[in-house]
Design a protein around this nucleic acid. Structure first.
Lengths: 116, 116
DNA sequence: TGTTCATATGCGAAACTTTCTATATAGTGA
DNA sequence: TCACTATATAGAAAGTTTCGCATATGAACA
């Protein structure tokens, strides 16, 4: 359904700085929990909790790989919604944040510790 | 500034069924408080409160005309943001709600009582 | 000036959200 | 099997939002 109620519900999920940044990160490239925790500078349980909220709403998907769990966008429609919302919000295209995974010093996640 | 924090703040204003519907109504045509109260089927003080929230954020503008106050969108950028957000949300173009002012039986606002 | 009508404001209780800390689970390798 | 690491969940305190009701303001007009 396309009621205002449903749409407000979806917007509510996006109306949170950390969740917004998480979505903006995972739409660039799949990231594991410990990497997001390092980038956002927030305790891991906190990040897992926000991820659970987004996951239960279908906005992101989890993929287990060994002990790591990588999160990526939930689908094309989610990507489109995000483009519309973030695009409309970040009016000036952001040149500061490179597209794709950014290595974080001190992050022990597979992508950050992989050899160049 | 274009921080996630600021953007979440804006999204929070939109993440509310009544506010969303109010914005969708006033972007079609300027409406007075009593009309919105009738359309939304909510008490006038409640509607005024939501309007105050949107007004203080600059999303809508008020224009006094006698004892009535008409509300309209705050500007081009607000209209664009709304188009992006509502457009992205209401994927199927809504043919049910006509563009422009809709007369409400029992509403005593100038637009509803005007002669055809 | 007093009344009426349209709108705004103030305040408070309930419901919800945020975010912390502690703890649980589950995969991996010794 | 045990310990270790990555992630998930639970529960609770603090903060915020929602929405109802009572009341205030302010324009218009008799």
């Amino acid at each position: 359904m396309n009621t205002y109620h449903d749409k407000a519900k979806l917007l509510k999920l996006l109306a949170h700085p950390m969740r917004l940044q998480i979505l903006d990160l995972v739409r660039r490239s799949e990231e594991c929990v410990c990497h997001l925790s390092a980038v956002l500078d927030k305790p891991q349980p906190y990040v897992s909790q926000q991820l659970a909220i987004l996951r239960e709403a279908g906005l992101i998907l989890d993929r287990k790989e060994g002990t790591n769990v990588f999160y990526g966008l939930g689908g094309k429609d989610v990507a489109n919604t995000l483009t519309a919302v973030l695009g409309a919000l970040f009016a000036n295209p952001r040149t500061d944040a490179a597209l794709g995974h950014e290595r974080i010093a001190g992050c022990c996640c597979p992508k950050c510790t992989a050899e160049a």
